[in-house]
Design a protein around this nucleic acid. Structure first.
Lengths: 239, 239
DNA sequence: ACCGCAACAATGGTCGGATCTTTCGCGTCG
DNA sequence: CGACGCGAAAGATCCGACCATTGTTGCGGT
């Protein structure tokens, strides 16, 4: 157990015990280092680690504060983890994404607001226009894709689910870019699938929304570059 | 963008570019600090943060190495995040756990090995004995509970799913302890639900396994201490 | 009395050096 | 040939100094 771990655990316990409330300011470095019995350098290492984890937030000239411990912010470093996964894990990551997004679609079907439906409709209409007029604008298409999925995730009523979907989207979406550039007609097929999801949401039909989302994401997986390696002793799992 | 962020991003890119392979050793602190254009102190802050994230691993007197980037290890700090969630998020966290574990049960039903089934059976038999002979041994009962769920998670064929379930178990299991101490007969009911899951796995019936698991976890949620706060403007979501 | 700007103090950010602890490699001795 | 021990190498920790940024305070002008 290193000194830095003492710092991390110490601050963690201070938060769990309520000594430090979200948004509250920490003692100055010198003082806190004395309290925890470590040098300022070791304290800073621990504080820095907690900052990267999204738990603390330091501002030069001001002080160090506990964040609001918001789920989405705390889940951000998991995206870091997702990025580091090798290509061998791509299908496994996607399977999780599919699981999460299908549940999101199911929940959103009964909870989505009319405003959100209108917003999503506007996005899909814009995508349709782009497909007709400027089919090479993949970047904007992808932005719309992300926004569409984000609207659904935001209306599940479960902020944890929202945050996790946000995290898993970052990686997969990048691969979607490669895919768009590789295959023709994919954007149009995806657009149709999005429309199907939107209709299910409009009719507030949870089962339909879930199935349409599942179909959509399976289509994404079909187009994923997939190189079976020597450790792939099992066939791709079918749902 | 602070110097430490430069370090974190620099090392991250070195890994993504393949300059650093999993298990490989990093240059010595002084040299790496020079390469990245920062002092040793700043470098150490970044390295320490990455160590806590499970990406690097430093051994005094030896050197700093890239971990094998195993999913379970990289997901560990997320447990930290789960611990920090307030009680207001408990049901939302549990909803995710339920989603993940139901999928795990479904997948494990067709993939679990005979050895694992035997192992799980032995665990459940021990739990049954404890319930008859020493009903107050909650601690051991909980250990068996964790082990049982872990066996299922380990046989999904999806290491990412395995790691995520591991992460979400830590928090929820603790609350299970409180629950066991609060209500009588809970341990026995849980034991029966576990047996039902085990039978479904034995018959390699994915649907049954999923449903039994869902029922089990809903039972857990029923016994969860739940205090509706002022921000709880929605009723608990029913599945 | 009010407003704007400048100086000051507090705080985190960065740096380089010094010393301690652990680990590993290699040479020596039994 | 093997066990022991010494020393080099590397990270762990600490310290003191200085830099950069921010918030505050007080002064002067209007």
């Amino acid at each position: 157990m290193s000194r830095t771990d003492d710092v991390v655990n110490g601050i963690k316990h201070m938060i769990l015990n309520g000594d430090l409330q979200p948004g509250e300011r920490l003692p100055v470095e010198k003082e806190l280092a004395e309290t925890l019995g470590v040098s300022r350098g070791s304290l800073r290492e621990g504080v820095r680690a907690l900052s990267i984890l999204g738990i603390l937030n330091s501002r030069q000239g001001d002080g160090t504060y506990v964040t609001d411990l918001d789920v989405s912010q705390l889940l951000a470093p998991m995206g870091f983890v997702v990025d580091l996964q090798g290509d061998g894990q791509t299908l496994h990551l996607h399977a999780i994404r599919r699981l999460l997004e299908c549940e999101a679609a199911r929940l959103a079907a009964t909870r989505i607001t009319d405003e959100a439906l209108k917003e999503a409709e506007a996005l899909l209409e814009e995508a349709g226009r782009i497909l007709d007029e400027n089919p090479e604008a993949h970047e904007r298409i992808i932005e719309i894709d992300i926004a569409f999925h984000r609207i659904i995730a935001a209306h599940t009523g479960n902020p944890v689910l929202t945050g996790m979907i946000e995290t898993f989207a970052s990686r997969t979406v990048r691969e979607r870019l490669w895919r768009s550039l590789r295959e023709e007609g994919i954007d149009r097929r995806t657009h149709g699938e999005h429309n199907a999801i939107w209709r299910a949401l409009k009719y507030h039909d949870p089962d339909a929304a879930r199935i349409r989302m599942a179909n959509h994401l399976l289509g994404v997986e079909d187009s994923l570059p997939f190189l079976p390696g020597p450790d792939e002793d099992e066939p791709p799992l079918e749902s």
